[in-house]
Design a protein around this nucleic acid. Structure first.
Lengths: 363, 363
DNA sequence: AGTCACCGTCGAAGCGATTCGAATCGACTC
DNA sequence: GAGTCGATTCGAATCGCTTCGACGGTGACT
């Protein structure tokens, strides 16, 4: 392995000079710098990470803690993780992957050993057990998500409340007055995961303000679960004309079930989703949706962290940053069908018909 | 920050003694060890990662390179990544997250700087540009996936050839003689991603050996693409009675389209998938499937790596390890329908019928 | 011409562990 | 009773880099 000293000898300067060429912390004359650069290139020198971390007490590593349970929002999680890694590299940092399994102690470990300078936490619970650790010995940290009490913490998240409001607004604007919400699995609410509850609040508040009736049902993933929930919804509220879905695994089952029961989307029923753009666009009916800006979330988290790391004077990096949601109109939302009139049997409850289609699809 | 020296002073021993207590590389008397342990505990000592890496030239970090494009197999990717992180921790290693973006140079960087001791590569192409780097200056590495020429490399993967064979075997055993394969996006084959081609080979070989006609069609994700592919398949081979799907985004669209065209699964058409178990189980028809053992893959990769790292004498850690696939029978596969006879209009081409269903689902 | 800044570079002192040879202390052998 | 051996523990060197104070030289200013 090539060391700083060898580079120095090769370039005919002292080790410290090479170091300063690399860090730019002191002025080095142009010819010298050129010479050193050439030697570095020629010898293929790479500074030793450990030695560097030891001497400077800066590891240039950010720890990223992803939840262990991969039962939720998986594509978004990975997208955020990749965005974090990419953004971190752009700032010269590397990313250490931590799973939730070790819990709060993992934070102490990587932080206390100087392995990581800072941490990014994903999938934050309203009352997260990792927060006390952060507030106490607090390594610099950014949460992706919003806990119940964000005081003193730095958080980035989508404004899910606004996202919920946006959905209702869109549907109400089209004329809908009865909306059903198909939510995340009950467990998600039980864990008090912030985004789910905030979305719900946004939905409810805006519904109340717009004279819209709202029905919310948590829902496990999978076809059968969705079928059950859907049946109950139509049972309780036969007049429901629009759905808001915040559960990636419920989307296709929902669309399939609507189709099978003869409800056309968007002619008979509108559907709006809160999910990754790609999923919305690829659904069997391209869905009007509020996207979860995974890339942006990851990038912002890193940017905030790095800013706090490089300028420790500006202590005001804490605080909550909520990204403004955007609703993309696709093919799944439209005005409610006209009220039932003679000769038009299909309004709230579509007609019963045979179940089978005939020719091959697309023909 | 607490240092080794402070612990030593507190325990009344020398620094080296503390070090040996920690590493166990030399015998330490019981009372001393106890005393040192107590001091460590009391002071909350944590060894400095950088210093340790410098002195021992072992960073206890494994780099994990995930592909940048997150357009494929996302859930599996994340599951493997998490499994790798978990397994690595069990061996006392941490995991550094690298994206494919930086390409081969990222390998040189983390490896040359001593940041990571070894690497795990995911999403390996048949002719991967990262392989030369590995073969040349070769840091210890394990590939998850199988390149064209695995000579001198350590690889772990599912035996996709066997997986393909297993699918055909299962369907042929049920009596099917015409099978259509809905594959990954054309781009995946164009990139020569090993697993896709190997699965295909397994399918074809076994089909040839079992007197089964096979039709393979790559397929983009999303409803429309699947519709097009499906139409072409039925056009060319009206007698197709079974599908093998290796494309997570095509599964639900396929099921939906089959339903819509009046083909019941498994009565009229059988479907077998190669995908994550969870997806197969949660599909609108629980799918008979060959699972991709993500956890196992991640764990094996780490185990191999750690073994090679701790016992450098046994140089035989290279070589290919293919996990044996297992087929789980669920609800989507069954014998083909009896040949058409008078009064039974539905055989290869189901009857044309009205499109709408009537009552709410589940009622 | 002498002094003062200042620029560019050097030398040396750490950073906090690991590791190897050597020292210490009883116990035991001859 | 001196020498030896084994079990422990200590001291010092080392890993490769950063950083701070110091030093020589040049140009400006008086």
């Amino acid at each position: 392995m090539v060391t700083l000293a060898e580079v120095a000898r090769h370039a005919g300067v002292s080790a410290s000079t090479v170091s300063y060429v690399l860090s730019g912390k002191r002025p080095i004359s142009d010819p010298t710098r050129r010479r050193v650069r050439a030697s570095i290139e020629q010898l293929g020198y790479q500074p030793h990470a450990g030695a560097r971390a030891l001497a400077s007490s800066r590891s240039r590593i950010i720890a990223l803690m992803v939840p262990l349970r991969t039962d939720m929002y998986v594509p978004v999680m990975l997208e955020i993780a990749v965005a974090v890694a990419t953004a971190a590299r752009a700032h010269g940092y590397d990313v250490l992957l931590l799973t939730g399994e070790e819990g709060p102690s993992a934070l102490r470990r990587v932080t206390g050993s100087g392995l990581a300078e800072a941490v990014i936490l994903m999938d934050v619970q309203l009352d997260d057990e990792r927060l006390p650790v952060l507030r106490a010995a607090g390594p610099p940290a950014v949460l992706v998500g919003l806990p119940a009490d964000p005081a003193g913490l730095s958080c980035v998240d989508l404004d899910f409340t606004a996202a919920g409001a946006l959905c209702v607004e869109h549907l109400a604007g089209l004329g809908h007055r009865e909306i059903a919400v198909i939510g995340e699995a009950p467990g998600v609410y039980a864990r008090h995961t912030g985004f789910a509850e905030r979305t719900l609040r946004g939905l409810r508040d805006r519904a109340a303000g717009s004279g819209v009736r709202l029905l919310h049902r948590p829902c496990e993933g999978g076809h059968d679960a969705v079928a059950g929930v859907l049946a109950r919804i139509f049972d309780e509220r036969p007049g429901v004309g629009a759905f808001v879905v915040q559960n990636e695994t419920a989307i296709e089952p929902l669309l399939a079930l609507l189709r099978r029961t003869g409800r056309a989307v968007p002619e008979d029923v509108s559907v709006v989703a809160v999910c990754a753009d790609q999923i919305a666009a690829q659904a069997s009916v391209p869905l009007t949706s509020v996207a979860i800006p995974a890339q942006e979330l990851g990038r912002r988290a890193v940017d905030r962290l790095v800013e706090g790391l490089t300028r420790p004077d500006a202590e005001d990096t804490s605080g909550v940053e909520l990204l403004t949601p955007a609703l993309t109109v696709r093919d799944s939302s439209g005005p409610p069908p006209p009220p039932a009139r003679p000769g038009n049997p299909r309004s709230a409850a579509p007609p019963h018909g045979a179940r089978a289609g005939s020719h091959p699809p697309g023909s």
